[in-house]
């Protein structure tokens, strides 16, 4: 039996030269890792959305309760206008826009972070 010559390479070298497996493919092939990536994105977006909804629920749900529990509050006047009117017919709209603006910024940031995480080579 003659000696057969074989090529001996270090496994480390091979590992180093193998192309990285991109995370987008993990997502496409629905591997466990891909699922983890997607769930983390959905969860952070949902957390952000629920935070805004909670703030909104406290403000919007709290106002009638406040007016009910502390009736005196309804009769306060700002520049001659009753407080409920100042809030409901005025100030609440800029508050909505502010919340929406903040949310859009945060949501876009989350998506940018996710894209960078998944797309890096």
């Amino acid at each position: 039996m003659s000696e057969r010559r074989v090529v001996v390479t270090s496994p480390r070298t091979r590992a180093a030269t193998r192309p990285r497996y991109p995370a987008t493919r993990e997502i496409d092939e629905q591997t466990r890792l891909g699922e983890v990536y997607m769930r983390s994105l959905v969860r952070s977006q949902l957390r952000l959305s629920l935070f805004v909804c909670t703030v909104l629920a406290c403000v919007v749900g709290g106002l009638p309760a406040l007016f009910l529990l502390i009736p005196g509050l309804r009769e306060l006047r700002l520049l001659g206008v009753p407080l409920p009117w100042v809030i409901l017919a005025g100030l609440i709209y800029p508050m909505f826009v502010g919340c929406a603006w903040w949310y859009v910024r945060q949501a876009e940031r989350t998506e940018k972070d996710f894209a960078e995480l998944v797309d890096r080579r």
Binding site: L48, S49, V52, C53, L56, V60, F96, A100, V104
Partner: peptide
């Protein structure tokens, strides 16, 4: 108006 805020975030 606020319905659009809920629509936006959800």
């Amino acid at each position: 108006a606020g319905g659009y805020l809920i629509l936006l975030v959800l």
